[in-house]
């Protein structure tokens, strides 16, 4: 479960006020909103990369508002993957387990099974500059899942990809979320992405979050850009 309770944040004239919403355990939530409305700020507050002025962040029933990112038990996939520039794919996926000083054979096993699941097993010795956009996002997903986090936070993971890759990766995201039984929060400005992935949809606008009863009630793509075609997995 991910719960935000009366979160407030301010930077200059930009502000988030009294933001509260709950993503139930094991559900795939999509948070929609226009570019620049504060979606990324909100996900950074959940990650612990930004400190809210007020309110609480609760993850899996535990108040983590004042805990560092490392202690929150989260997996985070940013927009461009943000892979570590000097790490091979194998090192990226094994990173969280290496930090936790797990035995080498356990790390190797986990890396191999995640790489198989995400279709990157043939790329394990490559560096990020030798990966395509879709491959990078798959590796970023594997890296986020390796330590078995309770929640997965995805910041526009499909927006930098072309249409065909977007469809594939959307299907993969949904399958992985189901199989791992993980609670996911995915932010996007695309209605089609939301329709394909979401169990529950929230909308952030004017600094507040409200639940959207049905994706069909949402206006067409907030950015005015063409909505991507995403099939139901």
């Amino acid at each position: 479960m991910i719960q935000l309770d009366s979160i407030a944040w301010r930077a200059g004239s930009f502000r988030l006020e009294n933001v509260s919403f709950t993503v139930p355990s094991g559900r795939y939530a999509v948070l929609m909103g226009r570019t620049g409305c504060g979606k990324t700020t909100l996900i950074e507050i959940i990650c612990g990369l930004r400190t809210p002025r007020a309110g609480r962040v609760i993850i899996a029933g535990r108040d983590v508002t004042h805990e560092p990112p490392a202690a929150r038990g989260i997996g985070y996939v940013p927009q461009d993957g943000a892979l570590f520039p000097t790490f091979t794919v194998r090192e990226q996926i094994g990173f969280a387990l290496r930090l936790r000083k797990r035995p080498a054979d356990e790390i190797a096993g986990r890396v191999a099974s995640l790489a198989d699941e995400l279709g990157v097993a043939h790329l394990l010795d490559r560096l990020p500059q030798n990966l395509s956009g879709g491959e990078r996002q798959r590796v970023a997903l594997g890296r986020a899942l390796a330590a078995k986090p309770k929640v997965l936070l995805l910041d526009e993971p499909l927006s930098a990809l072309d249409e065909e890759l977007r469809d594939d990766l959307a299907a993969l995201l949904k399958r992985v979320q189901r199989e791992h039984g993980i609670t996911a929060l995915h932010i996007t400005h695309s209605r089609a992405e939301s329709a394909a992935l979401a169990d529950v949809v929230f909308r952030l606008s004017d600094g507040r979050v409200c639940e959207v009863p049905s994706v069909a009630d949402e206006p067409e793509d907030f950015d005015g850009s063409e909505a991507p075609r995403v099939p139901q997995p």
Binding site: E44, L49, A70, Y76, A82, P85, L99, A140, R143, A147
Partner: peptide, 9 residues
């Protein structure tokens, strides 16, 4: 990448 590393532990 540094932010991601912090979320990973």
């Amino acid at each position: 990448p540094e932010d991601v590393a912090m979320t990973l532990g």
